[in-house]
């Protein structure tokens, strides 16, 4: 077990190095010289030269890459180019709202789509099943933007059930006042694809022989579904949860933008708009590391759910 974890962590290093190389290529070679952006109106040869020394741009490319690697390892990306705030502080203060939104969204979406999927799979082939399939196909074809725009307009502006926009200071204020609307919209977006995916997982398991055996020995339908089918369908479901994470990151970037949630998504959009490279690099690298760690955790979770799974 421990050797597996160590090996997996070891394997992350070349990938991470590759991601750093990719970002380095993008922002150093393709992105152009940032000293001109930073110098602004006071454009003189001296200012440019001093900014270049400050950023280490006068060094050779391998040296610059080493500086970048050092930044990643020490988690010290210097200061933001547009606000002069330390990048580590930006990440520290912005990560909370993002995690809050993503976590509640993921949990609610999982709960509702499992509920739908299990019931649809149970009544497979009925009108209910067909209706849910058709509705989810149509629902999936509508852009996430339309859900957000229309949801914000009807639920917040027209009905005034939720605040249109904003973020407070206290945890409970945010959780009870500002999170619900993005959450409802998010669940409405993600419940359709998830239901379709989980439905196929359930149906696959329900056709297995052990389900027939469970029924034959007289178990209640409830027990068959929850203990036997659900337990075995959990493996693809864990995969589904992990693979929906990138999709949810897109969603939360948009959601944070629309509802003024001061999270990482909002920050990265601001950074992209103002060519604030240190912030983009830092957020991207740490998200990549986080996702790698989550994938490792998911693989360990498989082992825990299903003892048949062999880690290799």
């Amino acid at each position: 077990m421990l050797s597996y974890i160590v090996r997996r962590l070891w394997q992350m290093i070349p990938t991470l190095l590759g991601v750093m190389l990719l970002l380095f290529t993008l922002y150093t070679l393709v992105g152009g010289d940032p000293s001109y952006i930073l110098a602004g109106k006071s454009l003189s040869a001296e200012t440019i030269a001093s900014i270049r020394t400050q950023l280490g741009l006068d060094k050779s490319l391998p040296e610059q890459f080493l500086i970048f690697v050092k930044q990643v390892l020490t988690m010290n990306f210097g200061t933001s180019w547009s606000t002069q705030q330390p990048v580590s502080e930006i990440i520290r203060t912005r990560i909370g709202p993002s995690v809050m939104l993503l976590l509640t969204w993921q949990l609610c979406s999982l709960f509702f789509s499992l509920l739908f999927a299990a019931s649809v799979a149970y009544y497979k082939g009925s009108i209910y099943d067909r209706a849910v399939t058709i509705i989810s196909t149509v629902a999936m074809s509508i852009s996430i933007l339309v859900y957000i725009i229309a949801g914000q307009y009807f639920l917040a502006y027209k009905m005034q059930w939720f605040p249109v926009y904003g973020w407070g200071n206290g945890f409970w204020q945010n959780f009870l006042l500002y999170i619900p609307l993005p959450l409802i919209i998010g669940v409405a977006v993600s419940v359709a694809p998830d239901t379709r995916f989980y439905r196929s997982c359930f149906i696959e398991e329900m056709n297995q022989d052990y389900v027939r055996t469970a029924r034959a020995k007289g178990l209640s339908e409830r027990k068959v579904m929850l203990k036997h089918v659900m337990r075995n369908a959990l493996i693809p479901i864990v995969t589904g949860v992990m693979s929906s994470l990138p999709y949810m990151i897109t969603g939360s970037v948009l959601m944070e933008r629309f509802f003024g949630i001061p999270g990482l998504g909002n920050e990265i959009l601001k950074a992209v708009n103002s060519s604030d490279f240190p912030v983009i690099k830092a957020i991207t690298i740490y998200l990549v590391i986080a996702i790698m760690v989550f994938n490792l955790l998911a693989d360990l979770l498989y082992k825990w759910i299903d003892p048949r799974v062999k880690l290799n």
Partner: peptide
């Protein structure tokens, strides 16, 4: 592995930032 380890949205934004 490099391209798949970065979430699509971040990869899109990273490219959009410099191009």
């Amino acid at each position: 592995s490099i391209f798949t380890s970065v979430p699509d949205m971040l990869l899109l934004l990273s490219f959009a930032a410099v191009l």
